[in-house]
Design a protein around this nucleic acid. Structure first.
Lengths: 348, 348
DNA sequence: GCAACTTATTATATAGTGAAATTAAACCTC
DNA sequence: GAGGTTTAATTTCACTATATAATAAGTTGC
């Protein structure tokens, strides 16, 4: 059995209240100096560590923050900008002496009650939700609960709800404009899943918007709806090249799908970027040749954590929303100027 | 204020014990069917969720497992095989309905008391430690505590201590033999920090061992002791090329340092692999051209989690140690045959 | 046939669980 | 004895476990 505050009190010949004061250095002026020192000595001798459960029960404070992310086929951090978001969160939160309680839910299966339990069980002081599914039960439970929370990569119209996001629309505009400036007339788009992902929807809408604004036609058969995986990228290329007019450039809603697309293009004997230009989104930096839209994931995680912390500790909040600019990173995968779609030349 | 079991009991006109039985489905035969149904209805109506703190206090069970990793300059998941280890852990643990409580400590600073607090606070049912520092205070606290724990990437002689590791020695032997077979006579070695990392030490010792066994000379000035970072890789190359006899091949103790080395080599006008062959360790797959030793990080994480879970749930444990084989992955960064160190040709 | 006694079922009351807050009390000092 | 300092006792937090009580139905003895 572990040492309790009672044991310490008994050995010191004082009450538990006195020990508690010394341990927490709270109302310490109510404890005499010599008793204080005696208790401190015994604390070390016995190796006492307060029980978090008991303390949490009384104080309603756990120093845990819940971090939730969602998966498609299986939970995974690897294939994702997710890791950098987490790094940002960790860097802020660990400095503030909080723990991170990680939890992950399926994006498709709506486990009734599981979310609510997580939110209402008193295990965490607040929640950071990374790219939660649209219209999800999870989101409802979060709203109904009394816990502070911050959404990452999700925008809400409610001015009271805290979130951080990147400027998806501008990111897509940049990459489309870049491709147009290279002379591309027909751009394929690989979307993430529109149904569950807010980011995906935003990026897709931005794509349609900017095409129209630039006076370009939008072709249904040059769009593929994937699920963020590499396989989705390969499938998209297969689909595009079954149509009469395959694109000369492809924008994928994330880097993973872009890499999948490149793989499939090469398999079909097409060169990147000579035959087809490919761009991604996220900048996961696992491939140093991919043109992509950089998302400042670390900063977003850091800022979200800060927002949550401010709420938990009841500090003044400068803003409830925060948008981060993206940055177009031009690399080799679309670095060529296109005279026309038949005859392609390299730019010196 | 959140709904408590008392509220439910009051509304249902029964005692709290009865409600507890229904909530946990424990000793449920002691509750009449109609009372059961009535309570279940009220449970939903009021939206009751048990308080984890109160429950944990009584039952001594939290359904949290602590995952600890260590950093050098700042906490980070990105630059590492760490992410895959975590994926393995998550994949097992989330299926078992446990939460992951992540905590990270500095490798250099020994924060007295902090580890012990983490181990003894009753917040977690067990601990997974990823590559803990050698001879660390953390390790002592873990041993002294009564929590079950499993070490990842750390071997201990004690048959009662659970750990998983990869076969570092064989990995290094494979890569050395590969380089020797390509004709290299002078191999540089970039070690991780020997002082704090068990893996690093094992790999370095393996390197010395196999050189001797193959009848090759070991040169002190062809060894550099880094700290796993990219910068360490660049520094190593700088150091090697200041000596009289720079190596024709370099083995780095992890991929990050190998990539740093390649960067610096190119900066100095040397070609990889034509002029210098470079190999890494881990297979972080952020660069598809690097020859490296693959470490089955996912499986290791998965297995470690399973071991821990078995201990926590008092299931029979098949073994306390588990070693995973590595696999040499030959890619471009060392793909050439060397006739002699002056005159190099490519193999067709 | 009725009280008394079983036996099984169902519900309640009570005692922890460790720590913190609140209230009460003891102890000085002047 | 007032006033301040220091310590103690008690209650609270939400929940679970254990022991005990109540209830009901059936069985037996006389």
């Amino acid at each position: 059995m572990a040492i309790t505050i009672k044991d310490v009190a008994q050995k010191a010949g004082v009450s538990v209240a006195t020990v508690s004061r010394v341990v927490n250095q709270k109302d310490i002026h109510k404890v005499g100096l010599k008793t204080q020192q005696r208790i401190e000595k015994i604390l070390k001798e016995l190796g006492y560590y307060p029980n978090t459960m008991a303390r949490g029960l009384k104080t309603r404070k756990t120093y845990n923050i819940g971090v939730v992310f969602f998966w498609y086929e299986k939970p995974s951090l690897s294939d994702y900008y997710l890791t950098r978001v987490l790094d940002g969160i960790i860097s802020f939160i660990s400095e503030k002496k909080y723990n991170i309680l990680m939890n992950t839910f399926s994006r498709n299966i709506q486990n009734e009650g599981v979310y609510a339990n997580f939110v209402n069980s008193g295990l965490v002081d607040g929640v950071l939700a990374i790219a939660p599914p649209v219209e999800s039960r999870f989101f409802q439970d979060l709203k109904q609960g009394s816990l502070p929370y911050v959404l990452i990569n999700y925008q809400v119209n409610d001015p009271n709800v805290c979130f951080v996001d990147c400027l998806n629309t501008q990111g897509i505009i940049d990459v489309v404009d870049h491709l147009l400036s290279l002379g591309h007339k027909r751009i394929g788009f690989i979307a993430g899943d529109i149904q569950y992902s807010k980011n995906s929807l935003d990026r897709f809408n931005a794509f349609k918007y900017i095409l129209k604004k630039r006076g370009m036609a939008f072709h249904d058969d040059n769009v593929y709806f994937g699920n963020w995986t590499e396989q989705a990228g390969t499938k998209a290329v297969e689909a595009f090249w079954k149509t009469k007019h395959p694109p000369t450039a492809i924008i994928a809603s994330n880097d993973i799908m872009a890499l999948g697309a490149i793989k499939q293009l090469r398999k079909q004997g097409l060169r990147v970027p000579q035959d087809v230009a490919v761009c991604g989104f996220d900048d996961i930096s696992s491939d140093m040749t991919l043109t992509t839209v950089h998302q400042p994931a670390f900063d977003m995680g850091h800022e979200a954590a800060k927002m949550l912390w401010s709420q938990i500790e009841k500090r003044p909040l400068d803003y409830t929303h925060r948008f981060f600019p993206t940055k177009l990173v031009v690399r080799e995968s679309c670095g060529y100027y296109l005279k026309n779609s038949q005859d392609q030349k390299t730019k010196s």
